[in-house]
Write a protein that binds this DNA or RNA. Structure first.
Lengths: 193, 193, 193, 193
DNA sequence: TATGAATGAGAATTCATTCAT
DNA sequence: TATGAATGAATTCTCATTCAT
């Protein structure tokens, strides 16, 4: 967390709301400022520029998202259970924060290359959590030993990401957490020794 | 294919090249026109607006992409083999067309919501191909019967898409088709009866 | 002259008028465009940016100013007469174009360093004309031989420039060309052998 | 001198330094406050607004500049000697204070019309000193009697000012006081009876 | 006196699209 | 069909100034 100043958090929350409601390209700085209840110029006391606001939204929100998942998996005894909790937490956290889901799955992906790179950088922490689960599964023989961990991690992340994106694009008409078991079964079957 | 007029194709090809080289946001209509060797205004004789150019790029290129995959899978005898060929074709086609891969995996995703919807519409044809493979696999007992086909389709597509995106973002430093066997094994294991 | 396109000249003339009437800092691009009867964007078809408009104003107008003085001095037989004509032309041209006088003596001097450098570059042509008169005067013994030509040139230019600036700042309440004889006498006395 | 309060002087000195180092347009109030070691708001306890700071810089510094020249000329016995001392003092004071020279010759001239008027007002005291020398020279027949004193004063000031500006713009690569004799000779020759 | 966080007005520039030729 | 000059709407960021403390 970059700052505990209340205005910093206000602006972050306002940005999520404005982007979720208006879409990436219609989210002007002035709109975010108004939603946050501050003057346009105040944004620039807390952020370098507009891109910095967007990156910070991702850092703050995904940071918490990832921390919770990392904590929850660490409390599980084996790789299969860890993977189960990871899927559960991934789905439930986004299901509980529809605005955040819209922002991360749809809107922020419309950003330019520079922002995409910074977003990917934040995601690395999540990919490492997945990597650790895979490693543990291989060591404990829950997963096959002939897998390419990096490729598997891409497939796990791609699977989860696509399911969530689909759910958002279908206007969240089905329940995400209800899919956990089947997704988990698919992934563990794909991996089992 | 919307049109066989040579200028129509010229503009499509120019758009792919310009977007791959400059990125989505730096691909102005005037740049595409110049690359295509026509005047700016001429673009509007063949396309309704800029978005229509981009949608058409996706339609033309993904249309061919999907047709080839549909044809190849139809020539295979069972679901497992069909899935194998689908992965092979998905990877090999994009590996052979790096410009197209950059455009579809990275650049066109920066587009606005309206364009994304139209892109998804084009993708439906591909998703139907995947659906047919899944159905056949279930019917022939190669795949489990307790799966949710729609969810499985999302996971398969998400897996392939993420692997390709990763390959593009890593500047295509590894060989995509070398991953086919492992991806196929992962998916069929996840699905097998 | 950079261009003969009519719009180019329209914009130059509009800029002179707008700057003379509103002052440097209140001369927005949109105001110049409106005065020129073109759209804001049209300015950018003919000029790289706002600074380029201002530099071009100076280049065009001072270019003509200097050309006329160079031609007139070349038609005089000796250094004293050349200096006389130079002063006459310097004063009369600005007296006949009050807007231009305001722009060159007051407004464009408020510009930033980059523009000032480019303005100085244009002025070099004028300084060379003065230098040639000084050289001829020294060669023909009309002027003393113990002078530092560069210093003398600065003093001549400084003298003329200050007199004109004063005239502009005093709202042009006296007649500039009436001062020619006395200025000429002062300068030639200061220089005579 | 408006004030003897130490902070007033601190701010004046800071403004000269900041403007000399950063240029007029990059000299924000906050930068001057930081250099002076005070808070932004403190500036407004001592000055009405930013323009007032800049005017005060000119008043303070040029006030001292002019006082010294007035005192030095008053100690000379005749107009020619007074003019000599005036030139000497004009050049030497600016040569000894390069920051001040940059500020008065280049940076403050980029200011708006209102500030220029106030600067000219300060300069009037200097112009009166020049006027007195001219009057004395005419009365004592060292200078011609057929001159227009106001015009001559403009030419003298223009000459000195242009020479100093040139010296500053050429990055002070030559020695200003070495030019005193030639400038003096040029001016007195131009004026002598 | 002194602080410094907050304010909010203001302007250059881009580029998709049009339309007279 | 084809051209390309012209259009004009739309938005980020800076910085002088204020005022509650």
């Amino acid at each position: 967390m970059k700052s505990n100043k209340p205005k910093y958090q206000q602006i972050i929350e306002a940005a999520v709301k404005v982007i979720a409601e208006n879409g990436y390209h219609a989210s002007q700085v002035s709109k975010i400022a108004k939603e946050a209840g501050v003057a346009d110029g105040t944004i620039y006391l807390y952020f370098k520029n507009k891109e910095d606001v967007l990156v910070s939204v991702f850092e703050e929100k995904m940071g918490q998202f990832i921390d919770k998942i990392a904590k929850a998996t660490s409390e599980q005894a084996n790789a299969n259970d860890k993977l189960k909790v990871l899927i559960e937490m991934h789905f439930s956290q986004l299901e509980e924060n529809p605005d955040l889901a819209i922002v991360t799955q749809l809107e922020l992906r419309q950003s330019n290359y520079s922002l995409r790179l910074q977003i990917n950088n934040v995601l690395k922490a999540y990919l490492r959590v997945i990597d650790e689960v895979i490693e543990e599964g291989m060591k404990d023989k829950q997963f096959r030993s002939d897998i390419n961990p990096a490729l598997i991690r891409q497939m796990i992340f791609g699977t989860l990401d696509e399911v969530v994106t689909n759910w958002v694009m279908k206007d969240r008409k089905f329940t995400l957490v209800d899919q956990v078991d089947e997704v988990h079964k698919f992934l563990t079957n794909g991996l089992k020794a």
